[in-house]
Design a protein around this nucleic acid. Sequence first.
DNA 1: GAGGCGTGGCG
DNA 2: TCGCCAAGCCT
Length: 345
Amino acid sequence: MRNKDTTPGAGSAELAVISAKVIEWQRSHGRHQLPWQQDVTPYKVLVSELMLQQTQVATVIPYFNRWMQVFPNAEALAAAAEDEVMRLWQGLGYYARARNLQKAARYIAELGEFPATLDALLQVPGVGRYTAGAIMSFAYQQYGPIVDGNVRRLYCRLFALDGIPNTPALEKQLWAKAELLTPNHQQAHADCRSFAQGLLDLGATVCKPRQPLCELCPLAAHCQALAQNRIASLPNAKPKKTVPVKDGHFLLIRQQQKVLLVKRPGAGIWPALWCLPQPEHAPEDAELAGEFSHQFTHYKLQAKVWIAELTLQNAEQAWVDLSCLDDFGLPAPVRLYLQSILKAG
DNA sequence: GAGGCGTGGCG
DNA sequence: TCGCCAAGCCT
């Protein structure tokens, strides 16, 4: 019996048409948002993809350019001091990425060659399933399925997937679609890079979270959510969780224009960054120097800064002139607070 | 496998 | 002001 696919909108022939349309759209409409996509190297893709995790392109660009000036290759990064790595990453957030990136550079330098298969890339620190696929697609122009926030939204609409976001069940469906839809470099004329870039750009500029531009979408004829008039309700809303408020205390220990900073531990919040000392509780009989608050993804920090005298600090420490803060990697809100002191005189 | 992990932009 | 979102990964 002939193998005939009767599934509406999900046949392998239609999948091939869809991926071809993504590539064609990318070639004619796609933007080259990333200036380093000329002259691609695996190291550049690794650096940019780590920086781009949960971070928008416009934010990453200046960080990437500075990074490549200082650490032009994996060997330079492998040999760098941790403080310099953190200084260049400061302000970008999710600081474990910076530490992972240096671990990755050391791993690759030790390996002697850049990993070039999905399985080998997954062994690299900081590289997960998405990043491995992105490196295969962008750096090697080979088969590399990707599922990120853009692709998630696009596939949920295109295939009318109405699972609950952030659940293994939906993730499994999404990756299954990605593996089917992603072109293979063993096929003739496969343009794996344009497909991956096309997916990301379509998600970012057409299949947007709010007010998607379906009239401009090259996949509109294949979109099940559009056909079912469910564009506005797919993907399903993420279950929302209330973020707790936490109190935090910081010590301002000054000698004229210098403040005492301590290096934070390598795990938890703000790993390996320099920061004002943080006691468990507010010191007794201390004068309040100031306050600030900071909104994290998972909680809100209400911080009080207390004027204090020099005491023994159980951490690496440094006296830092307020005019030299750029020499250290600091948490963004702490940097803001210290800059306000400098401004006030 | 659920939760921790930053920061900035935008409606 | 507030909530959502962003080229996710690790434990």
